[in-house]
Amino acid sequence: MTNLELQKMANEVRKGILTAVHSAKAGHPGGSLSAADIYTYLYFEEMNIDPKNPNKEDRDRFVLSKGHTAPGLYSTLANRGYFPVEDLKTLRKLGSYLQGHPCIHIPGVDMSSGSLGQGISAAVGMALGAKVQGKGNRVYCLVGDGEAEEGQVWEAAMFAGHRKLDNLCVILDYNGLQIDGKLEEVCSAEPFADKFKAFRFHVIEINAHDFDEIRAAFKEARETKCQPTVIIAHSVKGKGVSFMENNCGWHGKAPNDEEYAIAMADLEKVGEALCQK
């Protein structure tokens, strides 16, 4: 896909996030929106997947370690054709398959996750399993910057570096905010780059909303041998919705009807501008 096509799709993914969270009257829009461009690139460009055959043996895997941003993943999967976009409105409702946090039984979801720190370990296991069985697939894992306060993230990084798992690509969604405020004020795990380097990762830093940089980073990750890669993706929490941007109050809160209308109008405007290009 061209960058313009990716931008348009990411805008649709953002609309789906808002619609899902608004309908659920709960959920996590901020971190879903900050990672929307990454999700879009992974599922529309980077990964070897088949929405018609979600469990195909040789597919690349994705683990959403920051599982609370499930609306971002679900909206991407729906837009990619794993299930109807309309189903996003059932998010978090009793009887819906779209659980509050990712569940392995949802089409396209490779691992149940959401208890922070755990997804990355599973991703490391998937990468190890692929390696020892001589399978060529890659494993991608999205980790939150706040999530990196969990010790298990670094246990997983230690193992991945030790085992030289070059089929593993971790993406750190670095939006700088967590529930209680700015990382710098809560309990920052910075410096991230130095830490991952110390655990023998190849480190790439990018703007999480620039598809040229995203594209180049994933290419570089694919070409990196004998060590895992982390892409530290500097992002804006709430990206795309004016009143949500850089506001930790929108970490885990749904917009009311009025706010939803404003948010969707923001995104419609972006969409129209992209169509003019």
């Binding site: 895997r61 683990v63 392995i104 490779d110 691992m111 720190g117 755990q118 997804g119 990355i120 370990s121 599973a122 991703a123 490391v124 296991g125 998937m126 990468a127 190890l128 399993g129 692929a130 020892v132 069985q133 399978k135 010790g151 298990q152 246990e155 997983a156 230690m158 193992f159 030790h162 085992r163």
Partner: peptide, 28 residues
């Protein structure tokens, strides 16, 4: 030796790795 993975003193991570391995068809 090739089917044995020492995870070091990090049991929580070991359980997650076992989970990931199981998704690839291995019996950990």
């Amino acid at each position: 030796p090739d089917r044995f993975f020492d995870c070091g003193i990090a049991e929580c991570n070991m359980m997650g790795i076992a989970a990931g391995l199981a998704t690839t068809g291995l019996i950990p």
